[in-house]
């Protein structure tokens, strides 16, 4: 009997204490956590010149203007490179939140580029745990320079270059994001005899958030010149190292950077980076990204 009395007392006390629980604690118990996707692993679809895992949101258009100026060590007569510049204009559209397609045109070698990027996995916490974001990139480039004795094209297929990338990134807390980008680049026609048509490269990138709207970015593409005695890339070309600074202001992202790669796409980053950091043979550049929403429901407000 005493035992039952004791049990009853215990259950009575526990019920009382349960009823007196803080209402917010009660809510914590019942509320289902939502899936929280890591947002803004990078501020833009590019870390500096190469792609980041970010895609453009569905029905949004990202209009990008990128510039690379001349070599910084070209002296004051060239205003340290500012006299020369190349430009890439790009239109990149989000078909879905995960799939982006883009077209761009580089003034360097009069090259058009096209790409599709698909987010396979999205880093998330809360109701669903996923440690990394993984995206796939398929890109092609068409050189439209006229055929010259120094660079002769016998047919239009020779103007084509293709690139495939697997982009893996993780946002570590609020400030730091890191990305690994194994890449493969295939040129139908190469510039020099020492060059192989297919190159393999490992891209590494990261950002460090300085303030709520600015971040510091680094990007490096390591491309071996030989693998197992077989030469791949002409040794005159270098690995691309870029450092950048992102400023985000509402709908715009400004990316300012120094890089030893003149090109603004993987074709040049991996295959034809000519500058060297040691000699100051680097280029100042910027990207401006402006995102427009074409989502009709955006006009419908919850007023």
């Amino acid at each position: 009997m005493k035992k039952y009395l004791f049990l009853l007392c215990i259950s009575f006390i526990s019920t009382i204490s349960q009823a007196q629980d803080d209402l917010l604690d009660e809510l914590n118990k019942i509320q289902k956590p939502v899936i929280s996707y890591a947002s803004a692993t990078f501020k833009s679809t590019r870390i500096v010149s190469g792609h980041s895992i970010e895609t453009v949101a569905a029905k949004h258009l990202d209009f990008r203007i990128s510039h690379r100026f001349g070599a910084v060590n070209s002296g004051y007569q060239q205003l340290f490179g500012l006299d020369q510049s190349q430009i890439r204009l790009g239109f990149e559209f989000g078909l879905t939140d995960r799939l982006t397609v883009g077209v761009g045109r580089n003034s360097y070698q009069k090259t058009y580029d096209y790409y599709a990027k698909y987010k396979l996995l999205r880093q998330s916490s809360g109701a669903k745990l996923m440690p990394v974001t993984v995206a796939l990139l398929a890109a092609a480039y068409t050189n439209t320079l006229p055929s010259q004795p120094s660079a002769r094209f016998f047919n239009n297929l020779e103007r084509q270059t293709y690139c495939g990338q697997l982009l893996i990134a993780r946002k570590f807390g609020e400030r730091v994001s890191l990305q690994l980008t194994p890449s493969i680049l295939h040129r139908n026609k190469v510039e020099t005899e020492n060059d192989a048509n297919t190159l393999y490269s490992l891209g590494m990138g990261g950002r460090f958030k300085l303030t709520r709207r600015t971040s510091f970015n680094v990007e490096y593409y390591y491309t071996p010149t030989t693998v197992g005695g077989i030469s791949l890339r002409d040794p005159q070309f270098k690995n691309a190292l870029s450092i950048g600074f992102d400023i985000e202001t509402g709908g715009h992202v400004f990316q300012l950077h120094f890089t030893n790669s003149k090109g603004m796409s993987e074709k040049y980053l991996i295959g034809q980076t000519e500058g060297t950091w040691q000699n100051g043979d680097i280029f100042y550049g910027f990207n401006i990204s402006r995102v427009f929403s074409f989502d009709k429901s955006a006009r419908k407000t919850n007023k």
Partner: peptide
């Protein structure tokens, strides 16, 4: 009474605004 709102569950018609809401203004992390 008590109310608990998870900030990341706010959905905006403009996705960029949603990102800025969580990243720059509410600091949802």
């Amino acid at each position: 009474v008590a109310v608990k709102i998870q900030n990341v569950a706010f959905h905006f018609p403009n996705k960029l605004m949603e990102e800025h809401f969580n990243e720059n203004y509410m600091e949802s992390e």
